[in-house]
């Protein structure tokens, strides 16, 4: 925490990133109070209106207030990013950890499988899964996790392999510690850093990827406000620039914030890089 505060003071980008993300998290939490209109309320008399004092971000083709939809949409995007990263990091780390710790043929088979998933073009794989299983929020998240986990598995495996040869692991084994105990007490604490770096760097990517899938119509069904789907509405109403501009800016700002934080945490946890930046 002390380190964190120091970074906040000394690393401008980290401070900006944290501020952006904290703002978005607060907006997501208090969305219902902040949104000036009901995000689902249709008002055909007010459709396709440019930004004005009444509707700061304008209205879409059903007369819904875009500002309200952007505000409420933050909930879905942020939780999708966090859920995907958490689940993928957990599954991937366990998978890679087992592969690295056990080694041998098991390791070989497990990692070839992970590489096969990685070799698959990510967007096409996610789209196929989405189309095959049908568009729903749950299926979209499943597709995101399926695409994301192998990266964690690879990183975790390489870290575990480099750690398990260390003397302190050997001595723990010599003292008669069980495999489970070695994993939880000796190896896990030393690997968590690498996974956290990867995960924070990944959150921005996953929010982007989620919005990409929702842009393609694979997400929660239409009336719900979702940034990617809103940009897609904007493409259908090409001349009304405000419809796609504002949700796109929302995606951009949160991805920038997440990337700044990820960079900062990498600098903090990776001492080799720390002196470089």
């Amino acid at each position: 925490m002390k380190k964190f505060m120091k970074m906040y003071r000394t690393n401008l980008f980290f401070a900006v990133g944290t501020t952006i993300c904290m703002t978005w998290i607060l907006i997501a939490i208090f969305a219902n109070f902040l949104a000036p209109y009901d995000p689902l309320l249709q008002n055909m008399a007010e459709k396709l209106k440019p930004p004005s004092g009444q509707h700061w971000f304008g209205t879409d083709r059903l007369g819904r207030d875009i500002l309200s939809r952007v505000i409420v949409g933050s909930r879905l995007s942020i939780s999708a990013g966090l859920i995907t990263v958490t689940v993928a990091a957990t599954i991937g780390s366990i998978y890679g950890g087992i592969a690295g710790y056990v080694g041998g043929v098991t390791d070989n088979i497990m990692m070839r499988f992970a590489e096969m998933v990685l070799a698959f073009p990510a967007l096409i794989l996610a789209m196929v899964i989405g189309v095959v299983l049908g568009p729903s929020l749950y299926n979209t998240l499943l597709a995101l996790v399926i695409v994301a986990w192998p990266t964690y598995a690879r990183v975790m495996r390489s870290v575990v392999i480099s750690i398990k040869e260390n003397d302190y692991v050997e001595s723990s084994r010599a003292l008669g510690a069980s495999n489970f105990r070695i994993l939880s007490n000796e190896i896990l604490p030393n690997t968590i850093g690498a996974v956290i770096i990867l995960a924070t760097l990944d959150i921005g990517n996953q929010i982007l990827f989620f919005s990409t899938l929702s842009f393609l119509g694979l997400g929660s069904p239409p009336p719900n406000p979702e940034w990617g789907a809103m940009v897609s509405d904007g493409m259908d109403n090409f001349l009304q620039w405000w419809i796609c501009t504002f949700p796109g800016l929302a995606i951009l700002s949160i991805a920038i914030g997440a990337n700044f934080i990820g960079d900062g945490i990498r600098d903090l946890l990776d001492p080799k890089l720390r002196k470089e930046f």
């Binding site: 990617g228 940009v231 990337n259």
Partner: peptide
Amino acid sequence: VSVPSFWL
């Protein structure tokens, strides 16, 4: 690296 390509 943060900009959504479809939006841009």
